[in-house]
Design a protein around this nucleic acid. Sequence first.
DNA 1: CAACGACGGAACGGGTACGTATCGTCGTAA
DNA 2: TTACGACGATACGTACCCGTTCCGTCGTTG
Lengths: 187, 187
Amino acid sequence: MLREDVTDAIRAAVFEELAAVGFARMSIEGIARRAGVGKTAVYRRWKSKLELVLDLVSAFAAQGLPAPGTGSLYGDVRALLEVASHALRHPVASQVIPDLLVEAARHPEISDAIKAALLDGQRGIAAVIVRAAVERGELPEGADADRALDLIVGPLYWRLVVVRSELPPGYLDDLAASAVAALGHRH
Amino acid sequence: MLREDVTDAIRAAVFEELAAVGFARMSIEGIARRAGVGKTAVYRRWKSKLELVLDLVSAFAAQGLPAPGTGSLYGDVRALLEVASHALRHPVASQVIPDLLVEAARHPEISDAIKAALLDGQRGIAAVIVRAAVERGELPEGADADRALDLIVGPLYWRLVVVRSELPPGYLDDLAASAVAALGHRH
DNA sequence: CAACGACGGAACGGGTACGTATCGTCGTAA
DNA sequence: TTACGACGATACGTACCCGTTCCGTCGTTG
């Protein structure tokens, strides 16, 4: 019977190692070292670095984010931005997520896992938000949830992860208002 | 005197290697192998992998992108999106740029080089576009160029690099219109 | 035609990681 | 108390890469 405390220590070490050196440089030896564990303990549980990471990402997917229901489109968008900005400001997540997204371009398995764990969850939330707004009459029939997600999360991701600059005060409020304006715009 | 054809071969190999395996996995030996060159030829020119990449990125920065001047805010935004989408769809650039952006979080030198080569150029263009729109009366006085860049490029980057899905027909037109609507929105 | 210097190739010692095997130790369950 | 099995530690042979050194070749310069 595998000891659970050892398993947990390894999992935690993987996250730290991913954040510190990235998937490409991450090694089984480094994980075991950081976890204070023998290499044997790692290989007894997972066959490879890839399996190990896929397992962690999938565990993340199981959580499932709750969709906001504030009663207004602006409120829902603002709430989604709040959650997303917290995630992207987390020192570990803000390092691990972009790193795995880049690796996803080289490993289809990572791509699938990330899509299932993060992107599909967000798409679902966006779909709920848009549908509610349509029913409320705030958005025209047939509004596209994917496009909505681009407009809401794209600027935030760009600012936090690509440019990596601080958010000015009121930025999320502003961005939510801008997104609502852009979504409501008819072409 | 160093032979220029060898230098060019190495530079090309670095781009290919960066796209294929990423900065973290890239090795001097691999570059020389791909370039059909001895390791000596590489070390004779650059001291390290980092210097090599910084040199290439800086060369890119020297190009300098032209700011669009179409006469309307929508036209300028649409033109900027056109250029950006071409760059982010290029098979090598679309792999190299996100990879270096992630590495930038770990290497301040890369961060500085990328900022100088890409982000500052885009910021300058956004500033020109916004200033022209303000003079035209299309945007209110004091419109923020950085926020404009977030709203214009953010969604595109998200869609092309993060989600990595195809652009639906008319997506750029739509996005340009949405960005203009969001920018014009007063709060 | 002679000297020079960059070239590709090969080898160096040192470092890290791979995946596997073999220890002795220690907690647990029969 | 005995048997089992997961544990940490250590070592194995292989592979890759580091940065450097030496070699013989070859094109250019003078």
